[in-house]
Design a protein around this nucleic acid. Structure first.
Lengths: 223, 223
DNA sequence: TTTCAAAATTTGTGATCACATTCTAGTGGT
DNA sequence: ACCACTAGAATGTGATCACAAATTTTGAAA
């Protein structure tokens, strides 16, 4: 079965095929093109992405070690299914790391950066009003990571990215079923806290944004 | 060049060669068998571990994505060198995650678990008195991870493991040069906090243990 | 129609090969 | 002695193949 348009064409130029495949699959996961539980085959992906199984193997191995994909007991690569325990852990880890990243970013929030974040938040709000799932996901991701990147974190950022990757398939599942209109977001609190340079308020806003966002998911049945 | 005894024989039985190689290399890094900056070759490892380059490629790719190894701009796999920025980030991330893990473990610390932790701490102290680097590293690792594992974390634990892997090469370098006798540890505080069920004290002890431990490293020149 | 075992296909793993790039001596010139 | 340069060796990447294990399909019996 040929699944057209499942993967976007590679945006940038990559040095190796393996790297290209890695980002294409990663992107597809973030955009919700894979359902939890879906099994992925090396040869199938290789055929779709026009390369030999070799680069696919390495890309999948990499994504598996980031827990974006999962290795079944029969060595098959699948999109992970979520459990309440995993969700609670991801939630706790995101709070811990994203609070740290935000705090680290705070000194770098100047006037220009603040305006940029306000503009990105505007896009999130607009997407929520229009009930545009695709746009909401992209804008929300941009908002958070633009903030976190200000503190120039490398290690922490990649840990956070790994955590977002893990919730992406479930998140899209829930959005497609229940929409995004009722999603709370604490971006306003966050922006005010940043304007005041109030670390405590920023951390609190991040915590609530994450816990309420993932809480609204866990409230629904977990597939 | 044949480097004998660099790798321990595989302890358990692994399902695949790739997995065996992964844990052997991982173990070697944790035990300080690799110096920062050291370049690793796929074929060289394959010859030492008696397999084809293929499983080694995948194992190295996996370790690279965990930041235990690094990909140079010429695609060569090397043991990462530390920078003050990276060390600060690792320190912050460890504090955030290990405090969370400890808090999560706290309700599971019964009498038996407490005694086990006291016994492990005793080994750490003994190793420090004897200035036995190898034993200190092992005992300290056992102490921390035995505690964290009580809360049955999966995701957070693997993040913490990745962070420990990243500091291992530098840590061994410093230990070999300056010894371990002056290393502070906050395990006493930690144990008392746990006995009282005092979350705040536990978190504070973890924070200090990490910051003082890594601080004593950053105080020395970073290679 | 349903059930279940055997056959056929598909899959992951590991080995080997080809090729372009990178690294390493060794050479020659200053 | 020192440095730039070239030839040879070594390395990473990607393709292809062989094989065992897992999956799916098939077909016959109930």
């Amino acid at each position: 079965m040929k699944m057209a348009l499942e993967f976007s064409p590679p945006q940038e130029e990559f040095r190796t095929t393996q790297e290209r495949v890695y980002f294409q699959v990663r992107d597809a996961i973030l955009r919700g093109k894979f359902l939890p539980g879906h099994a992925i085959t090396i040869r199938g992906l290789a055929a779709e992405l026009n390369c030999s199984p070799m680069p696919v193997r390495e890309a999948l191995r990499r994504l598996t070690s980031e827990r974006a994909l999962e290795l079944s007991d029969t060595r098959r690569v699948t999109v992970p299914t979520m459990t309440p325990e995993k969700l609670a852990e991801i939630c706790a880890a995101r709070v811990a790391l994203e609070c740290q990243a935000a705090e680290q970013a705070l000194p770098f929030v100047g006037k220009g950066e603040f305006e940029q974040l306000r503009e990105l938040d505007g896009r999130v709000t607009a997407a929520l009003q229009q009930k545009n799932i695709e746009q909401y996901v992209t804008a929300n991701l941009d908002f958070h990571f633009t903030l976190y990147r200000l503190g120039r974190p490398h290690i922490i950022l990649s840990l956070i990215e790994s955590l977002w990757l893990q919730t992406a398939p479930l998140q899209h599942l829930v959005f497609q079923r229940f929409g995004v209109q009722e999603l709370p977001d604490r971006h306003e609190d966050l922006l005010e806290g940043m304007a005041d340079g109030d670390v405590g308020r920023v951390r609190q806003a991040i915590r609530q944004d994450i816990e309420e966002g993932l809480g609204s998911i866990s409230a629904e049945e977990l597939h």
